[in-house]
Computed example of a mutant assay.
Amino acid sequence: MQINVNTDRTIQKHQGLDEHVETVIQGSIGRFGEQVTRVDVHLSDDNKEKHADGGNSCMMEARVSGYQPIVVHEHATELHQSIKNAGGKLARALDSALGRLADKNKHVSVAAVATDLDGDIDPLSDKHLTDS
């Protein structure tokens, strides 16, 4: 999985920040392995000029093979907290999206199985066992 960290002019990019982002992403979505090909992370401080709290923003976009990109946004007072929270959101979004994709691929028509009184329908394919 390739991880790209991007910052705007309000965030100072350094090696420790890159390592923190990689650690959070690997911990959150590492289990998806080869399904996620790339994660783009965009960091900014929307309120840096105003010296206000809560403006640290983290946007993560995961590229999944065979699926549309999945994007999450998070704001927090601390940059590290927004990264951690976004990692959790991304994990939940991937669980949901990839779960739907798996369900779609393994879909069994309940109606076909329920009405199959003579047992000639394969529940894994919804096809009649007598069909060639």
Rank of each mutant, 00 (worst) to 15 (best):
F32R: 04
F32L: 03
F32P: 01
G33P: 09
E34R: 08
E34F: 09
E34N: 09
Q35G: 05
Q35K: 13
Q35A: 13
Q35P: 00
V36F: 03
T37D: 01
T37F: 01
T37E: 08
R38G: 08
R38K: 08
V39D: 12
D40H: 07
V41W: 06
V41F: 04
L43N: 11
L43A: 12
L43V: 12
L43P: 01
S44V: 00
S44R: 06
D45C: 10
D45A: 02
D45Q: 11
D46Q: 14
D46S: 10
N47W: 09
N47S: 13
N47A: 11
N47F: 14
N47G: 02
K48G: 01
E49A: 14
E49T: 15
E49K: 15
E49F: 00
K50P: 00
K50Y: 04
H51A: 14
H51C: 04
D53S: 13
D53R: 13
D53C: 02
D53I: 11
G55N: 13
G55R: 14
G55H: 11
N56W: 06
N56T: 04
N56E: 11
N56D: 05
S57K: 15
S57W: 12
C58F: 12
C58Q: 08
C58T: 13
C58I: 09
M59H: 13
E61I: 09
E61L: 10
A62K: 04
A62W: 02
